[in-house]
């Protein structure tokens, strides 16, 4: 396997990111699950099985707690690999 020649120096640019941008991405990942996937899951479950317990107090509270933890984990993981670059 031979390596390709180096790319043109004129077009090379550093991989730019900011902590705030990564925070928004992590919040977006959590928010997508919390506001799209979880309600969709709850509605389908209610539609097919007649069980709307996903929307009782306990379900959303657990979902929020888990997705907050996931958001922090995602932010930490993403930054960990970006710090390698910088």
């Amino acid at each position: 396997m031979t390596n390709l020649p180096l790319p043109d120096e004129k077009t090379v640019r550093p991989f730019a990111y900011s902590d705030a941008q990564v925070s928004r991405i992590a919040a977006g990942l959590s928010g997508y699950v919390l506001f799209i996937l979880y309600p969709a899951y709850g509605l389908l479950r209610g539609w097919w099985l007649g069980d709307f317990s996903s929307f009782s107090v306990e379900g959303p509270v657990v979902a929020v707690a888990i997705l907050c933890a996931f958001g922090f984990f995602a932010r930490w993981t993403i930054l960990k690999y970006l710090w390698i670059d910088s």
Partner: peptide, 16 residues
């Protein structure tokens, strides 16, 4: 850059 972002963003999703 696009591929790098893809790998970076999907990594926590894949891990979990």
């Amino acid at each position: 850059h696009t591929h790098w972002w893809f790998l970076i963003i999907t990594t926590p999703i894949i891990i979990v």
